[in-house]
């Protein structure tokens, strides 16, 4: 077998993982009980469901020799996009969670433990 096709198969596996992650994230967004765990589901969708398949798309493009020299453009664009998603999506969800917690806009319920809340109350008292 042509070794380039290994890249393609690897990429397709990553895309398949992305599909699974997106599905799980969508179910989580609909079923999870409060804002913070729904945000967790959303980040499963951005990293597992966007970053991973973008890397897979880069591998598929890199392995597709029939695309000629243009496959490097496609692979590069996919990798740059993947990097941007990788750094921007966590920063965005972090900012959302932080703002929601600081403004107490989202009620943590059902709650097992909220160490941040305890720390903050300890700091105020």
């Amino acid at each position: 077998m042509d070794p380039a096709w290994i890249l393609v198969i690897l990429g397709e596996v990553l895309v398949a993982i992305g599909v699974l992650c997106d599905l799980v994230a969508a179910i989580g967004m609909l079923r999870f009980p409060n804002f913070y765990v729904r945000l967790h589901a959303a980040t499963v969708g951005t990293i597992g469901g966007a970053f991973v398949p973008l890397v897979g798309a880069a591998l598929i493009a890199a392995g597709s020799e029939f695309l000629g020299v243009y496959r490097w453009f496609m692979a590069g664009a996919a990798l740059v996009t993947a990097f941007l998603v990788l750094i921007l999506a966590p920063a965005g969800s972090h900012a959302l969670a932080r703002a929601a917690h600081r403004s107490r806009a989202a009620v943590v319920k059902p709650k097992v433990v909220d160490h941040l809340e305890e720390d903050r109350r300890g700091g105020e008292g």
């Binding site: 941007l84 750094i87 921007l88 966590p90 920063a91 972090h94 900012a95 932080r98």
Partner: peptide, 16 residues
């Protein structure tokens, strides 16, 4: 401003 994490990421992305 916002937290250190967001600031660091923003510093990276503003150049881009």
């Amino acid at each position: 401003g916002m937290s250190l994490i967001v600031k660091t990421v923003t510093k990276l992305t503003i150049g881009m």
